[in-house]
Design a protein around this nucleic acid. Sequence first.
DNA 1: CATATGTTATACTAAATATATCACAAACTT
DNA 2: AAGTTTGTGATATATTTAGTATAACATATG
Lengths: 123, 123
Amino acid sequence: MIIEIDFNSDEAIYVQLCNQIILGIATSQFREGEQLPSVRQLAETIGINMHTVNKAYSILQQDGFVKIDRRRGAIIAIDIDKLRALNEAKSELAVVLARAMCKGIGRDDIHTLVDQIYDHYEG
Amino acid sequence: MIIEIDFNSDEAIYVQLCNQIILGIATSQFREGEQLPSVRQLAETIGINMHTVNKAYSILQQDGFVKIDRRRGAIIAIDIDKLRALNEAKSELAVVLARAMCKGIGRDDIHTLVDQIYDHYEG
DNA sequence: CATATGTTATACTAAATATATCACAAACTT
DNA sequence: AAGTTTGTGATATATTTAGTATAACATATG
């Protein structure tokens, strides 16, 4: 999978890394049990520091997307806590939808967007 | 409207301020043309610095939620650019939904959440 | 004139971000 | 056994962001 970092973005590099890997999992570019590049490899490929990659991996582990094995590095391993995930999704959605609603975006518009994104991920 | 800041949150104070005001607009606690507290007033009420409030107001102005008048302070004034708002909503949703999808949350779950939030805002 | 408004400027502390090395134990490869 | 690769830890440094503390200013209102 190709990981692209926007160095001019206001988003921190490790945040971009996390999001791209999660996006990769959602689009089946990464699959359960698959091995991520080592922190040193990925750091060199992207052209950033080893510790920045390590921070991203640690967060992914904490959030239950990978497990880190000393032998093989970071491995995709989804820890499913659906209730917790639902609560997090709801509070994140609340902020996004409030912005949208202020701008005149109706509930139907959002449903359409959700379907578009899910189609793109599952397709 | 009561604005509450969590000083232990990892979210910056000015970000929390922005989100709460946008939430207030979405729930009709703030209405078009209504006046927000002055930067000095709100800063004293919350117990933070004037500049922190000013930063939040400036961002809200830049994002098209308020207009700032030297005479009357910050006034709710939504600038509707629906196409732009749709694009922003979509890219923000993409990240949230990717996380959700990895955790086994299906499209129906999301639609339910969206309806819950919209009901709460419009209700 | 006095007051309240947003705005601007400066200075400072603290935290977050990212990089640069160095070192270590564990596991694998040869 | 030797060497390599793995994640991890420690330390140091530079940069940026966040937040505060003052002070001053122009403008509008009373």
